[in-house]
């Protein structure tokens, strides 16, 4: 109980390192979500609109990639951005850019798959009407994304939630460097390991708040869609 009280005190007292970690974590998550959404939402819409051979295989692949463990994603990106990797000269390893790249890769299949499955719930007449009126593919994509904006919001929120709560990628690619790449989840892992529960608990409370907020906003998006 004492630890929990101290955890609240850290947050309420504005303890600098705790709030820096929260802000950094959210900043990384925001950017990685942006980089996942830019290709993910159009790809989800293209999968929805496209009529091509192998579509089922493509959808199955996106769904399969979604289930890849975060450390495997981390390892994959590590092999590219490590000193000996093809992108080693960019010095992204153990830097914010590395964490953001890994998290973006983690969220990308989730955003794509959720956009695709969400758009499938749209009235099929909408797409057919655009098609019959002669809307070109990119026009249809824009119109479909606009019409399905509520399910897209859900996909974006899910992507944000996924990267905010992950630890494997941040640890492997960021190195958990204090005042540089340390995030909420890596701090929790480190502090809990050291037996210092106050900060871990305070960050856990914030993570819980983020998760609840995302669920609430997601619920609002679904309600508005109806």
């Amino acid at each position: 109980m004492n630890a929990l009280g101290n955890a609240f005190s850290l947050l309420a007292g504005g303890e600098r390192e705790t709030w820096w970690t929260i802000a950094t974590s959210l900043r990384f998550s925001l950017w990685s979500t942006v980089f996942a959404v830019i290709p993910g939402v159009p790809l989800g819409a293209a999968l929805f609109l496209g009529r091509f051979k192998g579509k089922r295989v493509a959808v199955a692949m996106v769904n399969a990639i979604m289930a890849v463990p975060t450390v495997v994603v981390g390892l994959f990106v590590y092999s590219f951005i490590s000193r000996s990797g093809p992108l080693g000269s960019l010095n992204m390893l153990y830097a914010p850019a590395g964490v953001i790249a890994g998290q973006a890769l983690l969220a990308f299949p989730l955003v794509t798959a959720m956009s695709y499955t969400g758009l499938q719930k749209l009235d099929p007449r909408y797409n057919e009407t655009l098609l019959t009126l002669g809307a070109r593919p990119w026009r249809r994509m824009i119109a479909i994304i606009r019409e399905g904006r509520f399910v897209i919001v859900q996909a974006v929120l899910a992507g944000f939630g996924r990267v905010t709560g992950e630890v494997g990628v941040s640890m492997m690619l960021g190195g958990n460097i204090r005042w540089y790449t340390r995030t909420m989840t890596t701090t929790i892992a480190l502090d809990a390991g050291k037996g210092e529960f106050e900060r871990a608990l305070s960050l856990g409370i914030v993570l819980l708040g983020v998760a609840l907020s995302i669920n609430f906003l997601s619920h609002l998006a679904v309600r508005d869609a109806r």
Partner: peptide, 15 residues
């Protein structure tokens, strides 16, 4: 096809 032909649904969709 798209310049000269249009299909209208039983319950049409208006934007």
């Amino acid at each position: 096809l798209r310049d000269r032909s249009v299909f209208v649904h039983q319950h049409p969709v208006l934007f």
